[in-house]
């Protein structure tokens, strides 16, 4: 029986430590070992019971075990295995520049197996960071290789990254469990350049709801995601299209009617062709 290792990844400042602190606060920490880059940022509201000889592992009265990763993740896992027999689950706070597929390979140390990688995304800054010449490609890779996304700071506007993977709520994360959706096959993707393209279309005249429904139902299956607002003659609708399914719901908003489509980058031209059929209500041929 090997111990599952759940990785909390994501770029610097995305909110990994905050998330780990919330998980520790909301779930009885017994049986959880948390591996962190640095002890300093973790709130353990409990007395320190003992510290291993090398200072690497600390056990707390509430049952939580904290382990600093240092330079060598494999060695840290080794140390953890030696230290305790009561561990049921390991949570790892990844470095901001680590990538999920690589991290999961490292979790195949004797006695452990990778459960999956949650990538924490700062919804407010993500769009800007994706354009950053230094970290854009890295963030794109982290998201592409993630098993689940956890969005932080979603109160600031619509964010479209949640289209790409099952998205977790804190509740689901708190009750981390082997049967979590998407945890089965480890994704092993090779590096490529930016894998997704987004295309926005603005609406210039209202459209009947049944026409909209027909257009949506005819969308090809390679469309990853569409989201936005569409005006009918009598109201505004929130449209969300994901995984071949779509939802349409009335919404009270003054936002500009725009639909954003996300497709694999190599389908961008095909998408633009498809959307030509929509031009009766689109402002421009996209």
């Amino acid at each position: 029986m090997t111990i599952p290792v759940t990785i909390i990844g994501g770029y610097l400042g995305a909110g990994k430590t905050t998330l780990i602190n919330r998980l520790l606060a909301e779930r009885k920490p017994a049986g959880i070992a948390v591996m962190v880059n640095d002890f300093g940022a973790i709130n353990i509201d409990a007395e320190l019971l003992r510290e291993s000889a090398d200072g690497r592992i600390r056990s707390f009265a509430n049952g939580c075990i904290c382990c600093s990763i240092g330079e060598d993740f494999g060695a840290a896992l080794d140390a953890l295995r030696v230290e305790s027999r009561s561990i049921e689950r390991v949570l790892v706070e990844a470095s901001g520049v680590a990538t999920p597929a690589n991290l999961k390979r490292q979790c195949r140390a004797p006695g452990f197996h990778p459960h999956g990688c949650v990538v924490v995304v700062d919804a407010e800054y993500h769009g800007r960071k994706l354009q950053d010449k230094y970290v854009g490609a890295l963030l794109e890779q982290q998201i592409r290789e993630a098993d689940w996304l956890y969005l932080n700071r979603t109160e600031h506007g619509i964010n479209l990254v949640d289209a790409l993977q099952p998205r977790l709520t804190l509740d689901e994360l708190v009750h981390l469990d082997e049967s979590l959706p998407g945890s089965a096959p480890a994704k092993e993707t090779s590096q490529t350049t930016l894998a997704f393209a987004s295309v926005s279309v603005r609406q210039h005249q209202t459209v009947e709801k049944r026409t909209l429904t027909r257009l949506l139902s005819e969308l090809p299956d390679w469309i990853e995601r569409a989201k936005g607002f569409v005006r009918t003659p009598d109201r505004t609708l929130l449209v969300q299209h994901s995984g071949g399914r779509f939802d349409i719901a009335p919404i009270d908003t003054k936002a500009e009617p725009v639909l954003v489509f996300i497709v694999p980058a190599n389908f961008e031209i095909a998408l633009r062709k498809t959307l030509k059929g929509w031009h009766s209500w689109c402002l421009d041929t996209p």
Binding site: L12, G96, V97, Y134, V135, A137, L138, S190
Partner: peptide
């Protein structure tokens, strides 16, 4: 071959 290098520290760090 299109692969990327890596950062040893996050650029912001």
């Amino acid at each position: 071959d299109g692969h990327h290098g890596e950062w040893l520290m996050p650029p912001d760090m």
